[in-house]
Amino acid sequence: MKLLVKLLPVLLLALCGCAREVSPVSALALDKTKDGYRLTAEIVRQDSVEDAAAPAYLAVSGADMPALLQRLGDLLPGELYLSHAQVLLLGESAAEESILPLADYLCTDNGVRLSLRVAVVRGGTAAGLLKNDDEVYALSELLERAAREGTLPDMPLYRAAEVLHASGTAILPALTLDEFGQTAPAGTAVFTNSRLSCFLDGSGSEGGAAGA
């Protein structure tokens, strides 16, 4: 009887364990717009066990990352689930702003993995490149393979945040759509004072920070 009384709180708490259905996000793309930012999320859809996971895209606009994620969560039927997000794409214009607040925010969000890979999209929008592949996790596999082969720098989010805090200078992998419409590595994006400065293959960025 005493044992039952002791176990009662556990059993009562067990009732609280009712999780919402999740809407897992596999990748994010951030672009600059006139009045703020536009966040595009690649949501994983799998309707039955037999089906393959397929991407679906949702986009929201807002002033900063917390507002964008809040709006994205409101749109989704299930819980916004970022733990399995593996790639964050930054459009050139978005990268020309200071990315340090963004990196800090994502690093402190316990729903986001520190190993999230960040890449800059060269020429074109991040959303466009994100939607280019029909396969879930194609981008993260590409980045991982390129990092393993040494064609792109291996720079997960936490390391980028660390070096930006230390010296304000960091390098991130760059991606682009090649002439065949395929996603391809496009050198290295160099950040100075937490802003996109240039690409390491010699061409400067189109924004005003190119000479910085």
Partner: peptide, 22 residues
């Protein structure tokens, strides 16, 4: 794992389980 620690479940396995739970 499914209630509190979904981040520990491999992504594709989690998607399959989530689909089955729907």
């Amino acid at each position: 794992l499914l209630l509190y620690h979904r981040e520990l479940v491999p992504a594709r396995l989690l998607f399959a389980i989530s689909a089955a739970q729907r």
